[in-house]
Write a protein that binds this DNA or RNA. Structure first.
Lengths: 202, 202
DNA sequence: GACGCTATTGCGCAAATGTCCAATAATCAC
DNA sequence: GTGATTATTGGACATTTGCGCAATAGCGTC
């Protein structure tokens, strides 16, 4: 098998195991079984388990960010961009990608490589929101005294609500996360009630 | 040593190790070393490691909730109660109790006992906030159409910001968590800027 | 002081994990 | 075909983990 393809296959298998069992419970042997290969092969391509986990997480989370970023770009005004942002963010959560983020945050204290990646990606998410808000304020569509703080608040609100949904599914449901987070952003940005309500995909 | 006291000592030692190393990295041997006793002793009092961890977490997190709850009760009006809430919540985080919560949320999916505890406590936190808001609305001091949703938002915002602080300390600082979360609650509840600003302890 | 109960010890066991390595299979240039 | 290079195997190894258990120490009662 082509070395590049093999490397990709290993990362894909690692991601599958991580999503199924969580980061902390992902072992070399599990990845090998998922891949249908031997455990030695993984170490032939990856120097350590930490590197493998970090790379798989980056691949997955980075792709989500790119998807959302691209969708936001297609919004014709800041309001629509923000709506697209929420549409994409709450959808990408469907395949339990949020459990990965929870694991990553918890493990960040103990795995420096993972920490660096999650920090960089979270900053990128915040900047994406921030640029939407700045556009909205410039266009007179949103009211916000401190876009940097507001962007961190919107991101943290989303993460905090998703966290409840993933950890305690009968406390907060997915529908509530969608509704409550959008309403929170409306309040934060001085938008009329319903401005950011989810639209039916056309 | 008195069995009851010994049990408490074991839980206290477990908590110390958990706060230092995180839940996932807490081992029987570490607890024994912290306690200055043998590993066998722990199993003489606790049926399993999971039970021990769950009990230690409940003890710690439950105490934090009680502290905050008591402080809030001393507020003479809903505004002051909310201010006391933020004072207490952001202070109790000082001794890295938040890393424990991060671990608990991440592990909740895989440890039913832990999940039950964290879910119950999170609900209690939300209800505490909710009752303050309801009082504030009744007294005409706050504006809020949906106190239940608002309480979940304030709690999630706090958790989400704290999460960033704990996981990526150079992205979001403790001072920013304090400032941004209070400002967020002011916006959420229609309060004038600065209403919830931290007061100097008299 | 002897006895009995229990707290406490310290080691051993089996399972799991990351890492490494010698042996083997596959592939390709000539 | 032959040899060289490399992908791949499968298991060895050291370490760590939760847990159990026989032996010991401490302490109150008679």
């Amino acid at each position: 098998m082509n070395p590049d393809d093999r490397r990709e296959a290993i990362i894909a298998a690692t991601l599958a195991v991580m999503q199924r069992q969580g980061i902390a419970a992902t072992t070399v042997r599990d990845v090998a079984a998922e891949l249908g290969a031997s455990s030695g092969l993984i170490h032939h391509y990856m120097t350590s388990m930490d590197e493998l986990i970090a790379e798989a997480f980056e691949r997955s989370a980075g792709a989500d960010l790119l998807t959302t970023s691209n969708l936001v770009e297609q919004g014709r005004d800041p309001i629509e961009q923000m709506r697209f942002f929420f549409d994409s963010y709450t959808r990408s959560d469907g395949d339990s990608g949020m459990q990965l983020w929870l694991d990553a945050w918890a493990e960040a204290a103990r795995r420096p490589e993972l920490r660096q990646i999650s920090q960089r990606l979270n900053k990128a998410w915040q900047q994406l929101i921030c640029s939407i808000i700045e556009g909205g304020v410039r266009a007179g569509l949103m009211t916000c005294l401190d876009p940097v703080a507001a962007a961190w608040r919107i991101l943290s609100l989303l993460d905090g609500l998703h966290l409840q949904e993933v950890a305690h599914s009968d406390s907060v449901t997915g529908a509530q996360v969608t509704k409550w987070s959008r309403r929170g952003a409306e309040i934060e940005l001085g938008l009329p009630l319903g401005t950011l309500t989810e639209r039916e995909p056309s």
